[in-house]
Design a protein around this nucleic acid. Sequence first.
DNA 1: GCAATTAATCTTGCACGCAATATAATTGTG
DNA 2: CACAATTATATTGCGTGCAAGATTAATTGC
Lengths: 148, 148
Amino acid sequence: MTAKTLPLPQQVCFALYSANNAMMRLYRPLLQPFDLTYPQYVVLLALWQQDNISLGQLGAATLFDSGTLTPLVKKLEQKGWLQRVSDASDERVKKVLLTAAGRALETEVATVMPALRCQVALPESQLLALREQAQQLLQQLQQLEACR
Amino acid sequence: MTAKTLPLPQQVCFALYSANNAMMRLYRPLLQPFDLTYPQYVVLLALWQQDNISLGQLGAATLFDSGTLTPLVKKLEQKGWLQRVSDASDERVKKVLLTAAGRALETEVATVMPALRCQVALPESQLLALREQAQQLLQQLQQLEACR
DNA sequence: GCAATTAATCTTGCACGCAATATAATTGTG
DNA sequence: CACAATTATATTGCGTGCAAGATTAATTGC
């Protein structure tokens, strides 16, 4: 009757948590040359897919809430990668618009993915399996959050 | 030639990252009654498995570096769950020792896991698959970090 | 034996994530 | 059309994570 809690190495959440932390550590030096952090990179990835969207839409794409997104976007504006412009038709919404430099950055940053990939000595199939499992968990949790 | 970067929904790292964030949001309200955060909970989980270990050993179990672990352990000491004691045989090392309250807490906190589990409507097999994939990624990344 | 190195922990500073709350614009309602 | 409810964004405060550097104690080389 000594085992009231599960050892860390057996916990799903701890595996997820520590794998994610390790991944962030791997990203850091690769993004540093561009003066980008991973969350900032995520915002740009979203904008490279769809530009000129509202902060709300950007939050939906990146899964950041406003408390995280607002300062992130302000920082990226300071760095000159994007602009925040008020929408004339609805003064509440702020739209985010990549600058020419921000659009050009996509080509530069395109080297990050392959550099990252070649350091991870795992078969593509395993990474896709991980993505699939993580996405299904995420989807389940989002569904939960949606019901309050 | 427009696709220089991969859309976020297809990225393994983003799936890992956002699933982990969602998991932390799920944990928060469950740990709040015990005035614990997830990282603090992780430290306690490690100590419940093996008590009276050095900060270095605790860091190895939790995968926290000293910059994260030191303030975490100090906070847990303030809350009365553990004590930090200097090792007489080597004055550099600080050993971490659960208090009686800290040991008793394990039983209380044991309700967190099942409460969490019953909110995640995914089959056990899928969670184990996710754990397996995450652990293998983690292991790969740790191996990388070990080679500097 | 003691200087130089190594080891264990601590401190500082920065950038998240997010809950809670505030502010301001818009919409719905009587 | 006033005004309460809703919506979009911003602010505040707290707790991480971690790189970089500092501090102190032990160990190693010569």
